[in-house]
Amino acid sequence: MEVVDHYFYTKEHEWIHIEDDQATIGISEYAQEALGDITFVELPSVGTEVEQFEQCSSVESVKAASDIYSPMSGKIIEVNTDLEEKPELINKDCYERGWIAKLELGALEEQSKLMNAEEYRNYLNTLE
């Protein structure tokens, strides 16, 4: 199961890639595999303020729907509009082209509540 080294992760299988005071978020390989073929992504609106672990988006496959929680708080500054026409980008490339939103971060210290890649790998091993 691919886990990107310099990203951080939540127990709900979202990832966040922090670059200074901005970040990109998406869902992990584990999450996209569990959901199967993704058919629709409900993107957040640009300008929305989200709290850490607050729902900001949702992803649907044929027989499942999953809410996406923001790994950190901040303001949505950009969303991946490619997903509107091609939700399958999440299945094909969940860590790069399948990103969901970009955030202007509110509180950098929140990162301490997230798992780094190694912790996330260990966490995945505890799941079956």
Partner: peptide
């Protein structure tokens, strides 16, 4: 189709 809206998948949502 679009069954992900419905109660048997979404339950309380």
């Amino acid at each position: 189709t679009l069954q992900a809206r419905e109660q048997h998948i979404r339950r309380e949502k």
